[in-house]
Amino acid sequence: MSTPSHGRSPGLSLGAFARRPEAGSLVGLFLVFAFFAVLGGPVFVGAPGWSSWLNIAAEVGIVALPVGLLMIAGELDISVGAVIPASQMTAAIVSGFHGLPAPAGIACGLGVGLAVGFVNGYLVTRTAISSLIITIGTMFSVMGLTLGFAVLVAGSTSVSLVPDPVTKLLLGTFIGGMFNVSMFWWAAFAVAIFYLLHVSPIGNWIFALGGDRESARNAGVPTSRLTIALYMLSGFAAAFVGILQVATYTSAQVATGQPFIFNSIMCVVIGGVLLTGGAGSVAGIVIGTMTFAIVNQGIFFSGLDPNVGSVIIGALLLAAVLSNDTFRALALKHAARRGNRGEER
């Protein structure tokens, strides 16, 4: 009761930070890193360790960012797992099999992602079916189409694409033989999506959409267009990861996307995004992605049974959800308490 609380800006004080959901995620990140640093030793703390988990983090992170936006808006996107192989297969067929220039294949691959995103968004806004079911449906359809077309056109479930040097440099190089350029793309996605969610007015719409869709629509938010745009963004990002993969490994496979479905959702939830929508942050999603990738790769450096890695990820997920709830309750209680104090004055 002693200090007046007027005009204190948030985020500057330690107390305000401790009440943010990302605080828990950050603590989790440090703990996980310390754990594997001890077990994995100098190799894990050195360049090989960093590059191995950053490479994983970059790919899943590019998908997790827009999936996180969708989750903040109260929707899910399972179809990313099918868009990744669909885009790389499209690019490989256009540029590898038919021999068109790489940019044409890349454009077609990204177009597939945007198209699947549009279909998802359209179905979600025009029907009352939950987005989980709709995107599971589109995932299976896209997966089947990818496999069917690959066999029909190229006669194989694996199509090779040898990118030209510029494409290879921009999308599929290992810097120093270890660090994939994908991590720069991840950083670029993070900056762009940070701007979208936390700086631009559209971010406010996304939070409102997840908080209360009906009220948001009544307040003049173009909810349907926004939902479709978010699905297209997620389709685009997944397609982009597909392109990065084909540029890196010079071959498109039809079954490369499945792990991304749950991994992206896990990164987002570990990062403090509320499953039911309405709350979350880009910083949290990035932290969650790093945590996930460190566990995923740290296990190989630590000499532990790889199955232990899955157990750790599962435990982290539960801990994250519990701590998110706790932090949220703290934040709300804090707001209420400050209000009561105000009344006493």
Binding site: F207, G211, S215, G278, L332
Partner: peptide
């Protein structure tokens, strides 16, 4: 409670 979003 319409028109207000608790976590904003």
């Amino acid at each position: 409670f319409g028109g207000t979003y608790p976590l904003m």
